[in-house]
């Protein structure tokens, strides 16, 4: 079983970003148990990290590990689409949009 390293880039602490963090943590707890590490990075506080990862939009969720790297942007409230985009669902080849 692979360990996951996830990075979530956000812009400030708003209701929308708090909701994104909460949704993602719940999603990871339910699907990855203790096999994940989630890093929350605010681009306003750490712009150099956003620059190094070439983040163009927030929220951006990056799956660093396992490889290959994957990156999604947009609404993280739809857990099924997020799982699919991260390759965590059983039929991730399905329609995401």
């Amino acid at each position: 079983m692979d360990n996951y390293i996830l990075k979530l880039y956000i812009t400030g602490r708003t209701l929308r970003t708090e909701r994104a963090i909460f949704t993602l943590q719940r999603l990871c707890d339910e699907n990855l148990k203790e096999r994940y590490e989630l890093l929350i990075i605010d681009v306003l506080e750490k712009p150099h990290l956003a620059e190094m990862d070439k983040v163009l939009a927030t929220p951006t969720l990056i799956r660093e590990l396992p490889l290959p790297r994957r990156r999604i942007i947009g609404d993280l409230s739809d857990t099924q689409k997020v799982l699919s985009a991260l390759g965590l669902d059983t039929d991730s080849a399905g329609e995401i949009v």
Partner: peptide
């Protein structure tokens, strides 16, 4: 790489850096 766009309910709001 911008990232895979996920939307719910037709559209979503994002911030452009």
């Amino acid at each position: 790489e911008l990232g895979y766009p996920v939307v719910a309910g037709g559209y979503s709001e994002i911030e452009l850096v």
